[in-house]
Nucleic acid binder design. Structure first.
Lengths: 177, 177
DNA sequence: CATGAATCGGATGTTCCGCTTCCGGTCAGG
DNA sequence: CCTGACCGGAAGCGGAACATCCGATTCATG
C-alpha cells in the first residue's frame, strides 16, 4: 500500500473517532472526510460504506476497552479502583457509536461477541466491588452498566467532567438514605 | 370549538409529550398523530407546523417547571430538599425537547424568557444549598445545571431511575476525595 | 331528523439531506 | 519519465419527514 494511502487511512480513523465522540452517531460521511482534509471519494476508497467504517471503529474501541479492563483487573488494586480507571478510560471515546451499533441488528457477529465479553468483564468487576464493599449494593450490576453507558456514551463526554465525577461519587456506598 | 376538536387537541398534546419524553426530539409528526389515534391532517389543523407544536409544549412545560420550583422554594424546607423535588418533578417530562429548542435560534422570545427565569431560579436554589452545606461546593452552579440537564433531559428518564438517584447522592457533600 | 359547517383522514406532492458512485486530474515510486 | 494507484468533489439516487388538499365523516342546532 502506498505511503500516502496509509497516512490518509489513519487520518480518516482519527477524524471519525473525534467527530463521533463529540457529536454522536449522526455524523455524516462528508463531515468525516472534510475533518480529515480529504474528499468523500477517498473515504469510500478505504471503507466501502458507512457500516464498514463504523464497524471497524467499534471493533477497535471495544477490543481496546476489553484489553484495558483486563489489564486493570490483573492489577493488585481494589475492584472499585479498577472500575474508576475503566470508566475514565472510556469517557471521551466514541462509545455512543458502539452502543447504538450493538443494539441494532446490523452489528456483525464479531462486534456482538466483543460486546458480550466487555459486558461480562464489567459485570464481574462490579459484583466484586460490591462484595468488597466499595460500591453501593442497592442497585444491580445491570443497572450500574446502564448508568455508565449513559454517562460515558453521551456525546462530548470527558474523563474528568463533572457528571463523571459526581456519578462515580454517587456510586460509592455510604450513609446516604 | 366543537367538543371532538377539543378532545383531539388534548390527545395530540398528551401523545406528543409522551413520545418526546420517551424518544427525544426526533419524533416525527406522523408518529405523534398515530399515537394520538388521528391522521396527520388533524394534527396540522391544530398546529400549523412542527415548530408551533413544539413551542407550545415547551412553553407549557417550562411554565410548569417554573411554577413548581417557585412553590417548592416557598416551602420551609432545606434548599437541598427543594432541589431534589424539582429534579424528581422534571424527570420523565419532555425537557430534552426544551433544551434542544432553547439552544437553537428559532426559539421564540417567550420561550427564551422562560428559560432565563427557570435558570435563575435553579441557580439561586443551588447556591443557597451550597451555602447551607447540603450540596457539594467543588462544582459551580452552572456545572450543576448542566449535570441536571443531561440526567433529566435524557430520553426515557424516570423520576426514580438509578441514574437520577445516584447523581443526587453524588451531589451531596461528603468526605469524598 | 335534517342540514351544513366544522372536522377528520391519509394519500400525495415537495423538499431536503446523506450515502454512494464515477471519472478526470494528480502524484508517489521505480 | 512513466505508469498505475490514488485523490477530489460534482452529480445521481433514495428515503424520510414536513406540509397540503379534498372527499368523507361527524357534530351541533333548528
Amino acid at each position: 500500500m502506498r505511503a500516502d494511502a496509509r497516512r490518509n487511512r489513519e487520518r480518516i480513523i482519527t477524524s471519525a473517532l473525534d467527530l463521533f465522540a463529540k457529536y454522536g452517531p449522526g455524523v455524516s460521511m462528508e463531515d468525516i472526510a472534510q475533518a480529515a482534509g480529504l474528499g468523500v471519494g477517498t473515504l469510500y476508497r478505504h471503507f466501502p460504506d458507512r457500516l464498514a467504517l463504523v464497524t471497524d471503529l467499534a471493533n477497535s474501541a471495544l477490543a481496546d476497552l476489553r484489553d484495558h479492563a483486563r489489564a486493570q483487573a490483573a492489577e493488585d488494586i481494589s475492584r472499585w479502583e479498577v472500575l474508576v480507571r475503566v470508566v475514565r478510560h472510556c469517557a471521551g471515546r466514541p462509545f455512543a457509536l458502539i452502543t447504538s451499533l450493538a443494539g441494532t441488528p446490523p452489528a456483525t457477529p464479531g462486534t456482538q461477541e466483543l460486546v458480550r465479553e466487555v459486558n461480562a468483564l464489567l459485570a464481574e468487576i462490579i459484583e466484586k466491588a460490591q462484595d468488597e464493599g466499595t460500591l453501593r449494593r442497592d442497585i444491580t450490576p445491570e443497572q450500574v452498566v446502564g448508568l455508565l453507558n449513559v454517562v460515558v456514551c453521551r456525546p462530548g463526554a470527558q474523563p474528568d467532567d463533572p457528571l463523571t465525577t459526581v456519578m462515580l461519587d454517587g456510586l460509592k456506598p455510604g450513609g446516604r438514605r
